[in-house]
Simulated assay, not measured.
Amino acid sequence: MEPPGSDLGTWSARRIVRNMFPLLVGLSVIVLWAGIRLEDAEALLEEYGLLAVMVPVMVGMGGNLGAIVSSRLTTRLHLGTTAFDPRDRHLWANVAATFALAATVFSVLAVGTWIIGLLVGNGLPLRTLLFISLSSGLSLAAIALVFSVATTYGSYRLGIDPDDTTIPIVTNVVDVFGMLLFLGIARWTLVG
């Protein structure tokens, strides 16, 4: 099941550092860029302060969705029960579960934010919050799935243990996309 010349079955601190150091430097640059973009959204978040409540959950949950899928795929890969076949019903079950979890969590996020808005007297309509949260969250779930499968498969094909690469890549990239999607959809919905 392992690619030729692969060291997937061995553990070595030197190998992990050699594979991860350049990856972590690149991911740090991506996250730094995302932080700068978040600063650009300061006016939107000041005008609609309630959105600031949603940002940490949106960003964190996107990475969590990607981490869950990546972990499941990597485990199945190590067990030899995955073939990265589009007809794999276990893969499609993970896709369905990810979208169901995203729909549930992001609906609860919208309702919770709406309740907070009622309590502090600075609310947005529930339908607006639901639209922003669900459209951002479900788009983010799709991105998390694509990056999870691509990173797991790519790591495997390169002979790198996906346990070393998938979580850092997927969580960082999906967190950045989550923030950008959320802010873009919020701006489009509220500002026009």
Rank of each mutant, 00 (worst) to 15 (best):
G5C: 08
D7E: 15
A13K: 14
V17E: 12
M20R: 11
F21M: 15
L23P: 02
I30S: 10
L32N: 14
L32E: 13
W33M: 07
G35C: 09
R37L: 12
L44E: 05
E47T: 15
G49F: 00
L50Q: 03
V53A: 04
P56A: 14
P56I: 14
G60K: 14
G62N: 04
N64Q: 12
N64E: 12
V69Y: 05
V69D: 02
S71K: 04
R72T: 09
R72S: 09
R76C: 08
A83Y: 13
R87H: 03
R89W: 06
W92M: 02
W92I: 04
A96N: 12
A97E: 12
T98V: 11
S107K: 07
S107N: 01
V108G: 14
V108P: 14
A110F: 01
V111P: 00
G112N: 06
G112S: 10
G117E: 03
V120I: 10
N122E: 03
I132S: 07
L134N: 02
S136Q: 08
L138G: 00
L145G: 03
S148A: 15
S148N: 15
V149R: 07
Y153D: 09
Y153R: 10
Y153I: 01
G154F: 04
L158K: 00
P162G: 03
P162C: 02
D164F: 11
T166G: 10
I167P: 04
V170D: 10
V170A: 04
V170W: 01
V170Q: 05
N172I: 06
L180M: 15
A186W: 02
A186C: 08
L190Y: 10
